[in-house]
Design a protein around this nucleic acid. Structure first.
Lengths: 156, 156
DNA sequence: GCGTTATAGTTTCATTTGAAACCATTTGCA
DNA sequence: TGCAAATGGTTTCAAATGAAACTATAACGC
């Protein structure tokens, strides 16, 4: 019979990955689950996709940003930001002006209607975050913060 | 002048989110960064999208699964699995047979060619995981495992 | 000033993705 | 048995996404 490839011994470098213990996989599951739970709260209710909410969130915090700056802050790419902004402006949730000294730049901010949405969605997002953190005790929460700070330092 | 909506005091429940301190956002950035780094290693080199690698990874570990079982293990939806399998079978990396007692079911496993790819990619994935974990000390790594176990318990 | 290069943002086009409809087979049960 | 409901898997269609090309303005070098 022909030679069969088989999983090598479990300790070998090329042994099959145990996804259930593989950090990148576990992070991906956790991240998707949490983000989806939040999105489910507002998505259909406000006709607001995740990308648009992210843009609104940073504009809530930093009024007057340009589209490029929004892209930086949200870690979205500029095409995605451009599309989200088009819809948000159309929906009257974001105001777009032209920069005084640079006509290429937008100067973006939430409208009153945008703030109204923001002020409903933000607490929902916070509540979900609290739900997740409630699964941990105080010591674990402190370590989690510290660990994420380290892992996210200097770009991922 | 018209009443202006403004960010409420920073402690208020509806205050703007600070994305940089918001857990779901931080998890998303970290997860995407890590997954992307791994994918960059093999994606173009083996013409192997992430979805297909995930399928190969579980088949490396559990030969004989059905498509539905692969979907469960990978946390992908069945359409994505179906498409990944179509390509993997076409590429000769996965073997698909029909289950003896249930003609609806596939019985899936890696081919020799599939194992060859697997045995190159798995070490690369492991190496990237090690790189990430190297940013932490032993104590932090232990806490991270414990925290993820808790957060992922009973579905996210 | 004037041509070149860089930057902000949008549009186009091709690919990816997901939901729902679909087909085949099996299971549950009258 | 035989028929309705459930299950495994694929296909179809519409929406989301990303890369590259494009427009407009600004900055740079001479």
């Amino acid at each position: 019979m022909p030679a069969k490839h088989k999983p090598a011994p479990a300790t070998a470098e090329h042994a099959p990955l145990q996804l259930e213990h593989f950090l990148p996989y576990r992070l991906s599951i956790l991240s998707n689950t949490v983000s989806q739970a939040i999105a489910d709260d507002y998505q259909s209710r406000f006709d607001l996709p995740v990308t648009e909410w992210r843009v609104m969130a940073v504009l809530g915090r930093y009024a007057g940003l340009s589209a490029r700056e929004v892209a930086e802050r949200t870690a979205m790419d500029k095409v995605a930001v451009s599309r989200a902004l088009a819809r948000l402006v159309e929906a009257g949730r974001v105001d777009r002006a032209v920069h005084d000294n640079d006509k290429r730049r937008s100067v973006l901010s939430l409208t009153d209607a945008g703030w109204a949405v923001h002020n409903e969605v933000a607490p929902m997002a916070r509540a979900r975050e609290r739900e997740v953190l409630a699964k941990l005790d105080a010591e674990e929460r402190a370590w989690l913060t510290r660990i994420l700070d380290k892992l996210l330092a200097n770009g991922g």
